[in-house]
Structure formats: structure tokens, C-alpha cells
Design a protein around this nucleic acid. Structure first.
Length: 829
RNA sequence: GCCCCCGUACUCCAACCGGUAGAGAGAGGCGACUUAAAAUCGUCGUAGUGUGGGUUCGAAUCCCACCGGGGGCACCA
């Protein structure tokens, strides 16, 4: 694409460089721990240092920076920190593929991204910067892990996972799509491995209920968390297995359908399967089925596969109806949820219906829809409420009541109880990866699993060890693994798994508050002073990952007495992505517009303004090459006017209040105050639609341009003071040019240390308003009247209008609707 | 399949509580300046708000249905 770039009226490159250095030297954006001002904590999500920023990233940081600057200019002691989510797979992959040391690769990327963030003119307090791969950071991951271990919140157990036999490592579900390892293409297995977990489910109810206390969060994020937690209430009870001294426990949310059970379905991994196999005559068939099921990943098993199963030849007994029901091993019952076994009620459950139809199992209807009495042949499962039939003592009861009554009966019989189940599982923390936080546990032959004593932290991740991509580099590193038992001092082995990197991002916002603390992760006093985060800004992709983990972690901190309150993030703002050429901007799509080239060409102020002006920040916005030129043009125009007027402004007292006299002067002054009001409203409502603020600034500039051409333009006090005020309004959004011009106008302190002006109601007030006159809802005339003119006066004036008279045509006015300063509607028959 | 959000001018978007559909930008047309072009300055806006119904004095805005786009959930018993 050929493009014409408007020549620069001002030297953006040297101005931007100059002020960035100046602000840095003056520590202008340092958050003070002992300031009497009210605090405001605004934060963008911890970025992964992937190497190069593009303008899509800049959209996020520009918004966050505008918020920080607006709040600072409103008198808040703003903390606006930045750091690095520096552990993780890409660094390790760089090592495997290109032989680069992960630490070096990461440090280089951090250096470059930090440079780029500075280039954006962001107002971070860099003295609080953290990097999670720094031992002084991750030692506190280990510290938290040990604290959780003490509290029983960190535990090791065997769990089924995706395992790649070639790479010798666990894979997350999304890295094993289609049952194939994303790196080597091997078929992954489901394997039971001993893994470390954090007991997030201990907080399940609280994490769910707490969402109701977050009015500042987008509804869709809360919905996603609710879905993910997946709380469900029901009853767990037992079926006796015939001929065996065994019971099968099932969980159901619909105990009212218990009389409709025609089979029991158990997961292939159910602990009782082994026992059933022994007793079964169909052993070979069952084993073959289970083998087939086990090779499928969870993804395939949950969404893609047809329901299937095999009859064990063994029966159980329905404790209420005493009917014999066949026990089937199936592929659709999840071992990890509830009890790993369900009662099959084809008549009232869609999945059971499908299964029963395929395998010719009977369908017994025990609930009829309201208004009907007879069972009929069901074409599909009836899952609604209704009246109970064929249900022993419960027949005739409303199913809703029956649900409680049967629950009560089962518990009276001593075979069941009400239970709550959650869809989400404990957080699997272990990773068989090198580039992460070592889990601080050692294994002693005599004393088993032992936590590393606190005074031996951090367990340092060794550097300069071979990383081949096969197996765990740490497990192979004898110097790391060989250690001594904290109890007996004999030879012991270290845990060689590292922690999921979501551990790092679960509490980083607390470390910013006290980043150099060498004795604890952060002081209680610093948390009390700054927390919670007032405004959190980031994409929606972390809805159920980071945002859920962090809420869990914060509650653990609360229970350890380290923080007050339960929620770390009061308000959450999800910004939308940036697209270019119809697609999301990303390296893999090859449609990246880089920061460096854009800033060099157009200047960062123009880029910031464009990103804000392009549309509401929560929407997807389009990057256009012509759009940014419009912002360059805008800044050039401002520059020309302000630079020419600067000598006059230096003579003009800053606090001189302009006194408008001509309508043109009033309009200009009003335009400026409308812009002030808009910027404040958009900030303080947390709507952040600064696209409208930029439009208001455009209007100010247009009005300035008008006046600059009239006689004595540059001597005009209103004109001059509006120019000065424009710099204040521009400062949060285009900080460099605003500072430069502010200084040229004689500003002594930084423009960013000024108070954002309050709009003046007198200036905002209009001398005249337009009242629309409607007849039967159609606009027939417009009247210019003084504000707050009474209905009677407006009506009298309206009736004198010829067009109005024509429409009324002598008919009586049945109804008059008057909206002061806006509209008068005359209704005639 | 279920749930949520969004459809406004050639394009991106404004209109926040139901009250004049247009603030702003981009692109484009015309004009001025220029030997010419760029830049600059001036100037130009009929789209009735995806479609069809409804409520109302009045609907982009509220309700219903449908169409299109985006997102979430989808064997969790």
C-alpha cells in the first residue's frame, strides 16, 4: 500500500525522547507509600515478554495509561506498576529449537519490551518492576506453596493426565488436541501420574458467591466463572451390587426420577471396575472396551464421541423400587466428577435416553408433564418438572416436592445424603518443565515427602543445563536433584517438577506494593495501604484462568492474615482486540504493525490518540494507515496554533480566568469545558470511552482555528487561555506534545502535575436552546428560546408558527407534551 | 442445541434517562494557494438506524419474531 505521510510540523521524535527522559529523571510517576492523597491502584495484566510489541498491545497500555494519568491529575496518589510474566514455555522452546539459554532469551525480551513501553510514554513506576523468573520473586512462590502445604491446600495425588510418551511430559488439554502431541505428533495417552495440586475447590462456594460482590466486573466474565465453577446440588446414594459385597454410589440432581432407573452407568476408570471384572463372565469384552476408552483424550471423550458401553453381566438393586438394574461400563460417565457412576434414567435424561436407545434398554417414565396423567411413548427424554407416576409412595406428588422427599427418604434409610458437586477441579500445579519455579519439596527414603525449610529458600533453578525437549531437564540434573533430608540429613531427592506459571500471576499485584521486601512477599501494611486494585485492565481470555486463580490466592492471603477483604480486583475492564486487514493482529498471521516503525514515522502521541479515538476500548477496533494520519494532522494543527501563541501566553498569568464576551468566544470556551467534562465523565464512570473525548478535543481545535483567523486572534485572552486549557485536556492522552507546548507557554511545573480542570457550569450553560415543535410527533418547527422557558411561553410561541398552524388546522389540541429545553409535542385529533 | 452482546452515511464511530438521527475522524468531490504536486486552508452529509411486527404523543433506544456478525456454554448426571 502506498501511503503519503503528512510532513511533520514538529519534531516528535526529539520531543518525545526529551520528555520521557525528563519524567524518568524527576521520578514523576513514582507512587508514594506515605502520601496523604487518596490511593488509586490501576493495573494492566502482567505481560508475557514475548519479544516485540505491536500496536495491538499498545491499545491496551494506552488505555491504562490514560486512566492512570486522568486519576493522577484528579489528585490521587496513583500506583501504576509493570512487570513480567517471565517463566513459561516459549523461552524453553527457544532453547530447544535454537539452543538459546532461556534466561538470556527472556532477559533480552524484557529489555526490548521495557524499551518499547517507555517509547509509548507510559507512566509506570519502574522502581516497582518485577520479573517472575527472578529468584527474589519466585522464592515467594515457594514460600506461598509451603504455607499452603501447611494448611493442607497443596497436596500431591495421582491423577489422570495427557501424557506424551515421546516428549516424556504432561501436556495441557489444549496442547493435545485431537489426542496428538502438538510438538512431536505422537498419540498422547491418559496416564495416572502423581501430581501437585492446589485445593482451589476448598473455596468453591466463596469464589462463586463472591462474584455477586463484584458489580464492577463485566457480566460475561462472571458468567464464565459461574459456568466454570459449575456448582450443582443433589443427592449421593448407594445401590447394592448383587452377589458382591459392594455398593455403587451415584450422584444425581434429580432424585425424584429414581423410580425410573433402568441401568447404572459407571466410568471406565471407576475403582470398582476391577472387582466387577473378576466377577464377570464377559471379562475380555469389558477389558477391550476399557482399553479403547483410555486412549482417548478428555477432549475427545467429552465432545466428539458417541456414547458407548458394555454390559458387565452384573446387576445392582434400586434401593427404592427394589428393581434389578444392569451395570454398564460406559465412555460417557466422567470418572473425575461426582462418584464416577450415575443412575441411568432414560425417560428423564437426554444422555441416558440416547444410551438406552442404542443399547435397547427400557425407558420407564416416572414424571408426566403438568396437565397430563398418563405415560406415553417418549420420543425424547422429558427433563421438565411435573407429576410423579409409578413411584411407589411418591406417586402423585409434584416432582419438585418429590425431589426433596426422596432425598429425605434416602438419608433416613442411611444410604444417602445431600451433596454439592463442582464442575471445576483442583488446580494442577505440576509441570514437567524446566523454565519455572521449582516446587520446594524433597523426598527422603525414610521420611517421605518433606517441605524445604523456609530458611533454605529459594530453591534456585539451575542455569546452564542441557535442554533437549525430551524429558525433564531438572530431573536429569543430579546436582539439582541430590540433596539432603531436612529431618535426618541423609541423602534425599528434590522434586523436579516446576510450578504452573499461573502461580506467578496470582499474586504479583501484591509484590508491586512492596517489591524489595527481603523478609516476606509483601508487608501487611503495604497491602492495607494500596489494596484492592481499583481498576484492572486486560483481555477476556483469562476469564477462568488467571482471574479465578488470583481470586483464590487472595482469599488464601486473607486467611493467613496478610490482606483485608476477599476480592483483589474491584473493577475489571476487558479491552477489545485490534484487527488489521480484517484479522486479529498477531505474529502468526503476519499482519503485525510494529511499535518501533509506527512511533518513528508518526510519533507516539499520534498513535496513542488514534488508538483511543478509533472506537470504544471494549470493542474490536480497526487499525488503519490513513486513520493515524488524521491524528498526525490534528497534532500538527494544535502545534501550529499553540507554538505561534506561546510568546503571548508566557506573559499571561496561568490563573487568569478568561471572560468571554462575543458569542464566538463563548462557544470556544464552552467547547473546552465540554471536553473537560467529557474526559472526567468517561474516567469517573469507568466507561473509558475516550473516543468521544478525542472528538471533543477535535471540536476545541476547530473552534480555536475559527477564532485564530479573526482579527487579533493571538492577542485574545479567551483564545490564549483555551489554548492553555487544551494542553491540560490533552495531557493524559498525548502526554509529550502537551508537555512541550505547556512548557513553551511558560508552564513552570510539568503539565502532568497539574490538576485536571473542573468544568464550569456557567460556561457550560447555553444562552439559547433549540426547542423542537412537533405536531402529532412530527417535527414542524424549531424555536430558539432562553433555557428553562416555561411550557406556556413555548406553546404560545409555537402556535404563532405558520407551519404549526397549518398542521393544527383549527383542530383542538388534545394533549401537550413538554420536555424543557428540548421539545414540545402538540397532539391534535 | 442453549445463553449473552452487537447491526446507524462509502468506512470507523456519536447520540449515556424513550425527545431535533450526526459530534468527531477517515475516504471522496469541489474551490483557494502553487509553474505543478504534496502539505495547508475553505467547502460539501437524504443514512431514517439489519428485516418485519408491537408498545407509546413520540422508538436507533423498550417488547416479540426473524436475518447477519461476535462471544460463552455444550455429555458435569
Amino acid at each position: 500500500m502506498t501511503e503519503m505521510t503528512p510532513p511533520q510540523t514538529y519534531d516528535h521524535a526529539s520531543i518525545e525522547r526529551h520528555w520521557q527522559r525528563h519524567w524518568e529523571e524527576r521520578a514523576l510517576y513514582r507512587a508514594l507509600d506515605d502520601s496523604p492523597k487518596p490511593t488509586y491502584y490501576t493495573l494492566e495484566m502482567l505481560p508475557y515478554p514475548s519479544g516485540d510489541l505491536h500496536v495491538g498491545h499498545a491499545k491496551n497500555y494506552t488505555l491504562g495509561d490514560a486512566v492512570a494519568r486522568m486519576m493522577r491529575m484528579q489528585g490521587y496518589n496513583v500506583i501504576h506498576p509493570m512487570g513480567w510474566d517471565a517463566f513459561g514455555l516459549p523461552a524453553e522452546n527457544a532453547a530447544i529449537q535454537r539452543g538459546i539459554d532461556p534466561a538470556k532469551w527472556t532477559r533480552q525480551n524484557i529489555a526490548n519490551m521495557q524499551r518499547q513501553l517507555r517509547l509509548l510514554g507510559t507512566s509506570y513506576d519502574w522502581s516497582r518492576e518485577i520479573a517472575s523468573c527472578d529468584p527474589e520473586y519466585y522464592r515467594w512462590n515457594q514460600w506461598f506453596f509451603l504455607k499452603m502445604y501447611e494448611r493442607g491446600l497443596a497436596y500431591k495425588r495421582e491423577a489422570p493426565v495427557n501424557w506424551c510418551p515421546k516428549d516424556q511430559t504432561v501436556l495441557a488439554n489444549e496442547q493435545a488436541e485431537g489426542g496428538v502431541c502438538w510438538r512431536c505428533g505422537s498419540q498422547v495417552e491418559r496416564r495416572n501420574l502423581s501430581q501437585w495440586f492446589l485445593k482451589i475447590t476448598a473455596y468453591a462456594d466463596e469464589l462463586l458467591a463472591g462474584l455477586d460482590d463484584l458489580p464492577g466486573w463485566p457480566e460475561r466474565i462472571k458468567t464464565m466463572q459461574r459456568n466454570w465453577i459449575g456448582r450443582s446440588e443433589g443427592v449421593t446414594f448407594s445401590f447394592e451390587v448383587e452377589r458382591l459385597e459392594e455398593r455403587i454410589r451415584v450422584f444425581t440432581t434429580r432424585p425424584d426420577t429414581t423410580f425410573g432407573v433402568t441401568f447404572l452407568a459407571i466410568a471406565a476408570e471407576h475403582p470398582l471396575v476391577a472387582r466387577l471384572l473378576e466377577a464377570s463372565k464377559r471379562r475380555g469384552e469389558i477389558e477391550r472396551f476399557i482399553e479403547g476408552v483410555k486412549h482417548k483424550s478428555e477432549l475427545e471423550r467429552t465432545s466428539l464421541m458417541e456414547k458407548d458401553g458394555v454390559f458387565t453381566g452384573i446387576y445392582a438393586v434400586n434401593p427404592l423400587s427394589h428393581e434389578r438394574v444392569p451395570i454398564w461400563v460406559t465412555n460417557y460417565v466422567l470418572a473425575e466428577y461426582g462418584t464416577g457412576a450415575v443412575m441411568g434414567v432414560p425417560a428423564h435424561d437426554e444422555r441416558d435416553f440416547e444410551f438406552a436407545r442404542k443399547h435397547g434398554l427400557p425407558v420407564i417414565q416416572v414424571i408426566v408433564p403438568p396437565g397430563t396423567t398418563e405415560a406415553e411413548t417418549l420420543r425424547e427424554a422429558y427433563v421438565g418438572e411435573g407429576r410423579m407416576i409409578a413411584s411407589g409412595d411418591f406417586t402423585g406428588m409434584a416432582s419438585k416436592r418429590g425431589l426433596r422427599a426422596i432425598g429425605d427418604r434416602l438419608s433416613q434409610m442411611g444410604i444417602g445424603e445431600r451433596t454439592v458437586n463442582y464442575r471445576f477441579r483442583d488446580w494442577l500445579l505440576s509441570r514437567q518443565r524446566y523454565w519455572g519455579t521449582p516446587i520446594p519439596i524433597v523426598y527422603c527414603e525414610e521420611h517421605g515427602e518433606q517441605p524445604v525449610p523456609y530458611d533454605q529458600l529459594p530453591v534456585v533453578l539451575p542455569t546452564n543445563i542441557p535442554i533437549t525437549g525430551e524429558g525433564s531437564p531438572l530431573a536429569r540434573d543430579e546436582a539439582f536433584v541430590r540433596t539432603t533430608c531436612p529431618i535426618c540429613g541423609k541423602l534425599a531427592r528434590r522434586e523436579s517438577d516446576t510450578m504452573d506459571t499461573f502461580m506467578d500471576s496470582s499474586w504479583y499485584y501484591l509484590r508491586y506494593l512492596d517489591p524489595h521486601n527481603a523478609t516476606e512477599p509483601f508487608s501487611a501494611a503495604s497491602a492495607k495501604h494500596w489494596m484492592p486494585v481499583d481498576q484492572y485492565i486486560g483481555g477476556a481470555e483469562h476469564a477462568v484462568l488467571h482471574l479465578l486463580y488470583a481470586r483464590f490466592f487472595y482469599r488464601v492471603c486473607r486467611d493467613m492474615g496478610m490482606v483485608d477483604g476477599s476480592e483483589p480486583f474491584t473493577r475489571l475492564f476487558n479491552q477489545g482486540t485490534l484487527i488489521y486487514g480484517g484479522e486479529k493482529m498477531s505474529k502468526s498471521r503476519g499482519n503485525v504493525v510494529g511499535i518501533d516503525a509506527t512511533v518513528e514515522k508518526h510519533g507516539v502521541d499520534a498513535m496513542r490518540l488514534f488508538l483511543l479515538a478509533a472506537g470504544p476500548p471494549e470493542d474490536v477496533t480497526d487499525w488503519t494507515d490513513t486513520g493515524i494520519q488524521g491524528r498526525v494532522r490534528f497534532l500538527n494543527r494544535i502545534w501550529r496554533l499553540a507554538d505561534a501563541a506561546a510568546p503571548h501566553l508566557r506573559e499571561l498569568p496561568v490563573d487568569l480566568v478568561p471572560n468571554a464576551v462575543t458569542p464566538q468566544e463563548k462557544a470556544l470556551l464552552r467547547a473546552l469545558h465540554v471536553a473537560f467534562k467529557n474526559a472526567l465523565d468517561e474516567t469517573n464512570s469507568r466507561r473509558f470511552h475516550f473516543n468521544t473525548t478525542v472528538a471533543r478535543l477535535d471540536e476545541v481545535l476547530n473552534a480555536l482555528t475559527d477564532l485564530s483567523r479573526t482579527a487579533g486572534g493571538e492577542e485574545n485572552v479567551v483564545y490564549l487561555q483555551v489554548l492553555r486549557g487544551t494542553m491540560l485536556a490533552l495531557a493524559p492522552f498525548a502526554p509529550h506534545i502537551a508537555e512541550e507546548l505547556w512548557q513553551r507557554m511558560g508552564g513552570r511545573e510539568s503539565v502532568h502535575l497539574q490538576t485536571f480542570p473542573q468544568p464550569c457550569t456557567d460556561v457550560l450553560a447555553l444562552d439559547e436552546v433549540t426547542v423542537v415543535i412537533q405536531v402529532n410527533g412530527k417535527v414542524r418547527a424549531r424555536l430558539q428560546v432562553a433555557p428553562r422557558t416555561t411550557e406556556a411561553t413555548v406553546a404560545a410561541l409555537a402556535l404563532q408558527e405558520p407551519t404549526v398552524q397549518l398542521q393544527i388546522n383549527g383542530k383542538p389540541v388534545r394533549k401537550r407534551i413538554y420536555v424543557p429545553d428540548k421539545l414540545l409535542n402538540l397532539v391534535v385529533s
